[in-house]
Amino acid sequence: MSKTSVVKTLSVLVLFLAASFVTATAQGEGSIEGDIVVLRALDKITARTLDLYVPIDEMVAFGSLSIHPRKCLKRPPEDPPETSTFLVITEINEGVEPVRLFSGWMFASSPAINALEHPVYDVWVIDCRISDPDASKDKE
């Protein structure tokens, strides 16, 4: 087996494992649904960071980004810690059509698995706040 075919095989395996991890984690089996997403945003030009507390289904602006969390899941305390959030991130510049940069699940424990790719901004998940755990069980 050539070195190139080994690298291709390993690449496919890594992508498969990452996709399996993302799917299993995003399904949130046994997870508690949160009300507020805690994100950390970085402007790479100014080195400014800001912690954003964004309620589900509301939008917040950071620079030219519009960040819209759709769902936030957190594992119960007895399970290994994990917070996963479904985000839609759009870049809005004056005089130009908005551009969707990211739409998918981000994970607090593995921010590199599914990250925002942008030359100026980084956004990652810190936490999922749950105002009343009993209220989220009533939604099910």
Rank of each mutant, 00 (worst) to 15 (best):
K44P: 05
C72H: 02
T85D: 01
W124I: 13
C72G: 03
I45D: 08
L13A: 11
V120M: 06
R48W: 07
M59Y: 00
K44C: 01
E29P: 03
L101S: 01
P111C: 14
R75I: 04
A47G: 06
D132A: 04
D132V: 11
T85A: 02
A135H: 15
D132T: 02
W124Y: 09
V6E: 03
A135F: 12
S136C: 01
A108F: 11
V14D: 06
M1N: 10
G104D: 11
S103H: 13
D79C: 11
L73Q: 00
S103L: 14
E78S: 09
K44F: 05
M106C: 10
T49K: 08
Y53M: 08
P77K: 07
I113G: 02
E140A: 09
A112S: 10
A24H: 11
D132K: 15
G104M: 10
A41S: 03
L13C: 08
V99N: 15
S109C: 15
M1P: 15
G95K: 11
T9V: 05
K137M: 07
I36D: 01
V22I: 05
W105T: 05
S11A: 14
V96M: 07
T46L: 03
K8W: 12
A115F: 12
H118K: 10
R40V: 11
I67A: 02
V12L: 11
L101V: 14
F107I: 12
K3H: 13
D51M: 12
I67Q: 01
S31L: 12
P119G: 05
T83C: 04
P111E: 02
D127P: 13
V12F: 04
A24S: 13
N114I: 13
W105E: 04
S136V: 09
C128R: 00
I32W: 07
I92N: 09
E29F: 13
S20C: 09
S84V: 11
G34V: 01
L17A: 15
L50Y: 06
R129Q: 12
T4V: 05
I89Y: 04
G34N: 06
I56R: 04
E117W: 15
D134Y: 13
A26V: 04
E29I: 01
A18T: 08
D138M: 13
I32T: 01
M1T: 11
F21E: 07
R48M: 03
P81R: 04
V37R: 00
R75G: 06
P55M: 02
F62H: 02
P77M: 09
D51Q: 10
